[in-house]
Design a protein around this nucleic acid. Sequence first.
DNA 1: TGCAAAAACGGACCCCGGGTCCGTATCGTC
DNA 2: GACGATACGGACCCGGGGTCCGTTTTTGCA
Lengths: 197, 197
Amino acid sequence: MPERRPRKDAARNRAAVLAAADSLFARGESVEAVTMADVAAEAGVGKATLFRAFGDRTGLIQALYAARLRPVMEAVEEGPSPLGPATPARQRVPALLDAILCFKLDNRHLALALEEAGSGGPYQAEQYDWWHHTLQAALEEIPGLPDAAFTAHALLAATRADLVEHLAGQQQMPRQQLRAHLAAYTARLLDAGGQIG
Amino acid sequence: MPERRPRKDAARNRAAVLAAADSLFARGESVEAVTMADVAAEAGVGKATLFRAFGDRTGLIQALYAARLRPVMEAVEEGPSPLGPATPARQRVPALLDAILCFKLDNRHLALALEEAGSGGPYQAEQYDWWHHTLQAALEEIPGLPDAAFTAHALLAATRADLVEHLAGQQQMPRQQLRAHLAAYTARLLDAGGQIG
DNA sequence: TGCAAAAACGGACCCCGGGTCCGTATCGTC
DNA sequence: GACGATACGGACCCGGGGTCCGTTTTTGCA
């Protein structure tokens, strides 16, 4: 299936919508206060165009999220240490979690919107599966841990967007402190079973 | 402020609504598919009655949730070991988490609905604060752990309703296995720093 | 027991936001 | 420049949360 490329006005509009949504989401306090009509207006486009390009609200949010996430994904899949695949698991796991946390801190609105989108929380967004797979694989190389799949879920849960928002947003916890807490928590889990610093 | 008690028809209707909502939520697949009008109809009551009694959708869900949770809360606050306050922290923490997990397994629809209600996830429902407080206090009595407040958040995140739903619902993981995973995870965290079994 | 004020009732109604329809404008191609 | 294919846009539909207000029930008091 050749998948012929879109007309150029369609491409232009798609980009405009993406930019408009990004700007609107970042501007206001809550993402859910931004209506699809708002986005269309900001982009200077009809509502139908927006739905034609992204299917529905969730689609738009996912597209934005995926775009922002791409560089991080690339860094994880083929980048240098400590995020890249050549890193020993014991260093890579905390690096992955820190990367996720930082990403969510930098993209709070989006992450929040995505994780609230539709029902089922973040667990149906395909990005979640990817993170989970990656993290699980790394965890499996560390001996003595509980079930890697569950552990990966539990660790990822500690970086849920609404928790991050609760801590960094409502409670004003500084970025560095949050990162330090998560790092300490992760270390505690990974270092159990013998060695003490 | 004497807070005179409600008229008896109001009380009866309140109970009827609660019962109707409970039944409807449990019956259907997704909670969000149940409309307020549905609940009113099932209860044999006008919509306004429903809103008068509970304020809004979230209020109704919270009321249901709180009612279900009460016995657990009592068991934690004044019950016997291992849930009650007299339990040593090292045993109480896993007991608390297991209790939460079981509760969410037994009340999946409700927990899911509550944690999705409004924005901000579960972190604005007052029950969360209560659990967090309780868990944090217990954690503080275990030496060598990372920041107790953060750890409590992280552990609670591992019992998020949508994660439970994902594992127990979509992936069909059996109850006992899920409990075992969580227990192992918790144990790993608590037992770190020296002693090996 | 009778009566009036207070409290609650109910369902028609409003509002707003996601998603769609279809007549019109634009693009790409020959 | 002409014609089919593709995209546009905003009026429109629909469904659900939440409210208004005329009517009914309860309650407190004589």
